[in-house]
Amino acid sequence: MSSTDTRMKVSVWRGDHEGGEFQIFDVPAQDSQTVLDVVAWIQQNDDPTLSYRFACRVGMCGSCAMMVNGQPRWTCRTHVKKVLKDNCIEIGPLRNLPVIKDLAADMDPFFEKWVKAEGVFHPSKTRNDQIEEIDPASVQRVKADAGIECINCSVCYASCDTVAGNPDFLGPAALNRAWTLYNDSRDAGSRKILDAVSGAGGCHNCHSMGSCAHFCPNGLNPMDAIAGLKRATAAAFFRRRT
């Protein structure tokens, strides 16, 4: 990594769940630098009390998401040159989640909603049964596969205005997971899933604003998944009445 003499002005949010403010750091610019590199540089060279979260640094674990210039991003795979504006960057904790400290947001509400949306596998077989053969090209499986690569980063959750306005809304990631399981032929919980996602905070709250699909770093489309749930719950409603 070759370093140059140029330096950047980086505003980093400091504080906890009670509030805080942006603090400005002067950080040397380097080639191929990611936003996570910038945060790490500050913590290692300027202020060791800065809190943030990361693990894999290669876009697999989903723990490094933050707001960068007001947009949610996976920081380990966001290049500085993509987001640098007038030599400045603003970095804050993920939106729509309580802040633990500085850049580390509390992910509990996010994961609790996965469980609430029945985003857990409901086995249909025991270990004594034959392993089921799944045709990867079947319509059902293609639908399930479309949403399977979620890394639980909460970028979509932070981008969603419906989450911001309604704390009970299950949110794009949990609903995307529910839709994936609903289409998984090995999952025995489709009825449970539809009940869980059609309640007060369920899929019908979504206004199809598409921020989730726009920002998902893995190119998933939770908005489409939610539309699928809307159709499935509506169809189930009419089936039950007749």
């Binding site: 007001g70 932070a158 206004h207 604003m209 598409g210 921020s211 699909a213 726009h214 920002f215």
Partner: peptide, 14 residues
């Protein structure tokens, strides 16, 4: 318009 809203689908919504 806040930064997380600047994309075509949100403009269509508004």
């Amino acid at each position: 318009i806040r930064p997380h809203r600047t994309h075509p689908l949100w403009y269509a919504f508004i």
